[in-house]
Design a binder for these strands. Sequence first.
DNA 1: CGAGTGAGTTGCATGATGAGACTTAGGGAG
DNA 2: CTCCCTAAGTCTCATCATGCAACTCACTCG
Lengths: 159, 159
Amino acid sequence: MLNRTYPGQACSIARALEVVGERWTLLILRDTYRGTRRFDDLQASLGVTRGVLASRLSRLVEEGLLERRPYQANPARFEYIPTAKGRELWPVLMHLLLWGDRYYPAPNGPPQVAEHTGCGGRLTPQLTCDQCGRQLGPGDVTLRPPAKQARSRRAAQLL
Amino acid sequence: MLNRTYPGQACSIARALEVVGERWTLLILRDTYRGTRRFDDLQASLGVTRGVLASRLSRLVEEGLLERRPYQANPARFEYIPTAKGRELWPVLMHLLLWGDRYYPAPNGPPQVAEHTGCGGRLTPQLTCDQCGRQLGPGDVTLRPPAKQARSRRAAQLL
DNA sequence: CGAGTGAGTTGCATGATGAGACTTAGGGAG
DNA sequence: CTCCCTAAGTCTCATCATGCAACTCACTCG
């Protein structure tokens, strides 16, 4: 979305979007997951302008989502590999994929299906609770200040 | 990110981003989850320009993520309520929140914590398999054409 | 009557993007 | 040696989107 900040937003969602919310950024990341990791390959695969691609890549490297690693010297050539920080955005991409498949299926031919490689199950489009394991929705979650005053104050309910 | 399309992208992620990838769109959606649902409230909460807000809202209504519902007549006044389709993007927002909290914690004071209202557990930042229930990462998922030839062809592995 | 509120629309200056040519450094063919 | 190719960028220019701020419109309240 922007190069700019979302000023005055205390929310982590806004801070996350300052890094990965610009046009093309998430698609570049997706391509690096899939193994498209060189400048010209990314450019061809995405159809993004070379200038924009260069600027997104350098931002992603700066922020530590990608590592710019030489794969040959003479002449020096580089590839962009997702770091742990970069890979942790994978769930975001997968949820977008599931949502897109559901509401905007591919015009010609059905969408790709994401399946668990060994077992054949599908990705669950749900978030779960790490204690009780139940599936959570907007109504099940409370945002509050962490630790310390543990249970004392109740903050804004999400939805 | 864009108003424009990501031409030539067959992927559902790109199609999803065509709808919700523009600057401000996801933050507007987040606010409607939280109960901020009127034009002026959204404008004040986000600090977005009135013009941009108007254009994003009308797009979201067009695409069926929000419903523009009058809450009074004379003078006619409206609020924007998330539809089921809009609410299903909640996991995307939550993963962004978890990721942002982890890598870009709020400068003053610790981040908000999302907890399961009844049980006190945290949101799992992981996707799971709907059959075996195991947590999945980029390496565990295969994208392939759906149904029909069920298991016959194996397509691009995600990472 | 005059001020206030909510939901927009309009106009201008600035910033970001798309299209496409140019650069740099080395490799290979003839 | 010269010409052409590849990879990874950089540069320029026209167009599009955004931010800022004022204006409109319809109705209500004091």
